[in-house]
Design a protein around this nucleic acid. Sequence first.
DNA 1: GTACTTTTACTCGGATACCGTCTGTCCGAGTAATTATGG
DNA 2: CCATAATTACTCGGACAGACGGTATCCGAGTAAAAGTAC
Lengths: 160, 160
Amino acid sequence: MQMKTGVEQAIYAISILEMLPAKAVLPGEAISSRLGASPTYCHKLLRKLVNANLITSVAGVKGGFKLNKKADFITVYDIYVAIEGQQSLYSSCGILHDVLQLPTEEKKCMLTDLMLQAEDSWKNILKSETIASLVQQMRTPHYEQELQSLELWISEKMVI
Amino acid sequence: MQMKTGVEQAIYAISILEMLPAKAVLPGEAISSRLGASPTYCHKLLRKLVNANLITSVAGVKGGFKLNKKADFITVYDIYVAIEGQQSLYSSCGILHDVLQLPTEEKKCMLTDLMLQAEDSWKNILKSETIASLVQQMRTPHYEQELQSLELWISEKMVI
DNA sequence: GTACTTTTACTCGGATACCGTCTGTCCGAGTAATTATGG
DNA sequence: CCATAATTACTCGGACAGACGGTATCCGAGTAAAAGTAC
């Protein structure tokens, strides 16, 4: 039970897109190389983000990806759901049914309520952080130099 | 990212042991059959619970398993850790390092704090529920009949 | 110079292979109660 | 009748096979800008 690495990749990919000037797009190849991730798999993740309407893609020459929403409206939870899906962290396999030998229609589980409660609590924290606040958090004097070189790199790789 | 089914099995296994009279033990074979789980795999889970000092095992003829602690002191979280281990739900794979091209020693991740916070919140809910309260929750008039037959079954299968 | 075609460089989406982890099985070893054996 | 040995029925713990999901790769199709071509 561990979060997939794809979620982290997706979050940083979107963070990079947040730094992109409006109307500009960034090719998928550039994104994956900057993340140090496998190009094709990163591509697949980006497509999931497109399907979730978090980013948009422009096809053809001078194509690439860009944000579809303001970064203030994209939460870490949105990205998590886009990559991992919206299934619960816990789903009962109906053991209580066997233990108590209940009639077939009854499907209660003592744990479901508790687990759902815990999950909601977890999700709420993830919903509280947006990409905008995440990037803002990165903008400290300590990373000033690195961010400048990142933005320079973006301006080189972006199109239109 | 989903909780393993083994955790649910382990929780109900311990719940059954909670109903066991003091000094009596229940053979692993009986437990697995009541859970409707594979005998050998269930056995493996029970051993994990033994290693976590939640239950104890008695070897030899008339052997079996029983609780090692009062059910009030066993939380759902304890069982989760015993089965899944105490690793975090999230561990950074160091992408920020690549994105910002940081010097080798620096290992910061923007997400770690947030994820740890969310995880703590999740864990706290799991820690708030004990096996005792879980079983108590089951003791409603609605399940009276089933619980009686379960206790009858326990008294048949237990030894000493 | 305009309209059309070709080229180019991207994304899209499916098929597929790889690999680690969870699930499940098997077997030999250890242990303790019971039973059998010998004096 | 008592002491010792064999049997029995469990747990212990490791090795290993299978299933599944996440990771990663490849390829053909679609698309749009740019370049080339024809008139």
